[in-house]
Amino acid sequence: MTLNDELLDRSPSPAGDGTSVPEPAGRILRGRRRGWKNVAGTLPFIAYLGVFLAVPAVSVIATAFQDGKGNLTLSNFNEAIHGVYLKSFIASIQLSFVAALVAVVVGLLAALAVSSTSNKIVRSLVTAGSGVFANTGGVPLAFSFVATVGNFGIVTKLLQSAGFDLYSHGFSLYSVTGLAIVYQYFLIPLMILIMLPPIQALRKEWVDASESLGASRSQFWRWIGIPLLAPPIFAAFIVLFTDAFAAYATAQALTSGTIPLVPIQLGALISGNVLAGQTNLGDALGAGMILIVVIAGLIYATIQRRTSKWLR
């Protein structure tokens, strides 16, 4: 139904002036009938998403509101926002926020630097590298950092022999800070990948025009460059945030499930390593995770609507 409405909504309207010509009823009816037939070929895809994504997600949310006997209750959530679980929500959000922020800044600088070289080799190297590293993650990444700055990592030992002991200065790879650093390995490339197209879409003519109109370089950035880059930067931040928030494998492999982060806690509940007071606490945590991702998405949509009204 909604798909079909969408189809009709976007029926061609004369370009430019934005007014749409009312269509004769017959055409709309015919359009609607054809619309259904047009959607038919995509039903397997929609059904598949429904069964293997929507059903699990909805069942988690539904179960989160039930006790062990199937009665409606909010006590799962009550538990989920107290004690260690509250702490892990806070820690998870902090970790994802900081990791995403750092990656946004570093990735943006790198994307700017890459875009400003005319050296083609550097460009394609960074693009290819970003494409590759952005898909890295998980367990192997954790171990390669263990080999680098773990307790007995190569860099740790190098620094030790140079008289600097990382671990006695408060650093630990197996902490939230350590994770934030490890996550950079896939977040920064992701940021670069997201930002290269919008940066390269900044046109020479805009700089020239602003300059000839009397604007200084910083005025150009203030009025044109930053407003144009801000929406993709926000978008990237949200993507990075959710990516970091949902990440499980790296943290699990690195800390063996001892760190208080939501995915880790949830994983522990699932594999039964923890004696939970309530049967469906995990579902409440899961629902909470979905909620946070959705909130992030909504914030993104709101900001986007504000910052890029010139796009519609």
Partner: peptide, 22 residues
Amino acid sequence: LPAAKRNIGMVFQSYSLFPNMT
């Protein structure tokens, strides 16, 4: 003299309007 101080009006071939401004 830098471009910003010359007070010269320029019109380019295309795409030169700032897309984020009316």
